[in-house]
Amino acid sequence: MDRNQISKWFKNPGKMANKYSFHVVYFCTGCGIIEIPPSITTRWDAERFGIIPVATPRQANLFLITGYVSTKTLKAIIRTYEQMPEPKYTVAFGSCPINGGMYYDSYNTITSLDKYIPVDGYIAGCMPRPEAIFIGVTHLWKLIDMDKADGYKRYRRDYKFYRANQEQLFKELGWPPLFKDASL
C-alpha cells in the first residue's frame, strides 16, 4: 500500500473499504455462472482482492449478473437488487445482458438489462474468462475512485423510469415501490 493509498483511506474510509471488500451476490442467472467457481477457488483466488461470495443481498455490495436474463429471472434480479444496501454496484457479465447476445430474438429473454436496473459496468464476451472478471473489478475500483459507479444513485433518481419499465414487463410485481415519493 503506497502513501497515496493511505491518505485516501483517511479521507474516505467508507469508499476505500467498499473497494477492497466486495461481497458478491453471484446470481446464477445463465451460463456465465460456470466461470465463477474457478475464479473464487484455488486457480484464480478472488479472495486475495477481498472478493467473497455471500448468501444474502443484505450483506452484499456487488451484484454480478452472469449471462442471459430470462424474464422470470429478471423479477428475482430486481428484488435482489432492491434489497442490497447502498452503496451497491452491479456488473453484468457476458454479452447477453448487454443486448441479448445470441438470444436477441428470444421470446422470454430480455435484451437490455439496463432498462430494468442500473448497471455500473459490463464485461463483454461469450464467455469472458475469469481474468476478465478481475480486470472488470479493477475498472470498477477506478470508477468508484472517480465516483462514476453511481448506479444506485441513478436508481434512486430515475426510479419512476425503472419501475415503469418493470411494471410494463410484469403486470404484478408483488412488492410495493422501493421509494415512496416515486409512485406512478
Binding site: G14, S21, H23, T42, D45, R48, R58
Partner: peptide, 26 residues
Amino acid sequence: AKIHWRCGPPVYQPLIDVIRSFSQKS
C-alpha cells in the same frame, strides 16, 4: 487460504469488511 494453495486476503481484511459494513446503509 494457504492450506488451499491460494494466496488469500491480507490479514487485516476483516477490519476492511467491518468498515465497509459500517459505511453501508442497513
